[in-house]
């Protein structure tokens, strides 16, 4: 984490999702929060490439993805010193309770279920990042 002034610095968020519509909708939801710099990744491998060059404050990842899925990504990040404590939100379906439990056991912080709703995403991200916006 950077030590910049939280009032002015932007928070880097990485969205890892192989479905373009879903990815776009998550990015749209995050755009409703002030001070977010959102990066998109198509799958786990693409995410690892981006994580190697940029420091992120939050990672939102789908579980079912080709090449490197969300569970493997969470496992690798939690074994990485740089991302050991960075918050991770996983995206699951309501029926995938087993995957959800595995992801949480591996170190994910929270989950959102599909179909996602913008208010649900915004509320969770604000909670995790401790963002308090002026209601005015």
């Amino acid at each position: 984490m950077t030590q910049d002034n939280p009032e002015t610095r932007r928070l880097n968020v990485l969205v890892v999702e192989d479905s373009p519509p879903m990815r776009k909708m998550i990015v749209f939801a995050l755009s409703r929060i002030k001070g977010m710099a959102v990066t998109e990744a198509d799958d786990g491998v693409d995410a690892l490439r981006k994580l190697a060059t940029t420091k992120y404050d939050l990672i939102i990842t789908d579980i079912n993805m080709p090449i490197l899925d969300g569970l493997k990504l969470v496992k690798r990040l939690r074994a990485d010193g740089a991302y050991m404590k960075v918050p991770i939100i996983i995206i699951t379906t309501e029926g995938a309770a087993e995957d959800r439990q595995r992801a949480l056991a591996l170190g994910a912080n929270a989950y959102i279920t599909k179909p996602i709703q913008a208010p649900q995403v915004i509320k969770l991200v604000k909670e995790i990042l401790g963002i308090v916006e002026d209601p005015r």
């Binding site: 519509p21 909708m25 749209f28 939801a29 913008a118 208010p119």
Partner: peptide, 12 residues
């Protein structure tokens, strides 16, 4: 906000 999200989903 909900309306905006809905329109965005239609657009996407």
């Amino acid at each position: 906000e909900l309306e905006s999200y809905h329109l965005a989903s239609m657009y996407v």
